[in-house]
C-alpha cells in the first residue's frame, strides 16, 4: 500500500507552487530556470502517481518524454544565459529594460 492519489497530487501541487514562486520572485535568470525545472518535476510526480492509480504505463512514458524536454530546455536556456551575459554583462532579469515602453 502506498499513499492515496490525493496525497500524491497534493505533493505535486505544493512543488508546482514552489517552482512558480521561485520563477516569479527571483531576479536571477538561473533561479528562474530552476523554478521552471521544479515545475516540470512536479508534473512528473503527478504523472507517475496517476500511472499507478490507473495501472497504465502512459504516465511513465510521458514522464520520460518530459525529462527529455526538460534537458533540452535547460541546455538552450543556459546557452542563452551565456549569450546574454556576454552581451550585457549581467544575469539580473530586472536590468534587461531596453524594451521598456
Amino acid at each position: 500500500m502506498t499513499a492515496p492519489l490525493e496525497h500524491i497530487l497534493a505533493l505535486a501541487l505544493v512543488l508546482f507552487a514552489l517552482g512558480a514562486f521561485c520563477a516569479l520572485a527571483r531576479r536571477n535568470l538561473i533561479m528562474i530556470l530552476l523554478g521552471v525545472e521544479i515545475m516540470l518535476n512536479a508534473c512528473c510526480v503527478a504523472l507517475v502517481g496517476a500511472s499507478l492509480k490507473w495501472q497504465a504505463p502512459d504516465g511513465q512514458a510521458f514522464t520520460l518524454i518530459l525529462m527529455a524536454l526538460g534537458a533540452a530546455e535547460a541546455a538552450v536556456g543556459l546557452a542563452l544565459f551565456v549569450h546574454a551575459r556576454k552581451r550585457t554583462g549581467t544575469l539580473d532579469a530586472a536590468s534587461y529594460s531596453s524594451m521598456k515602453g
Binding site: L52, T63, M67, A71
Partner: peptide
Amino acid sequence: FALLGAPLVAVLQIMIPAGAVMVLF
C-alpha cells in the same frame, strides 16, 4: 518514483535531471 512503481523512471530521474541537468547548471 521507485516507490510508486516506476523503476526505469527513477533511474532516469537520477541520471538526467539530478545528474546531467543540475551539473550543467
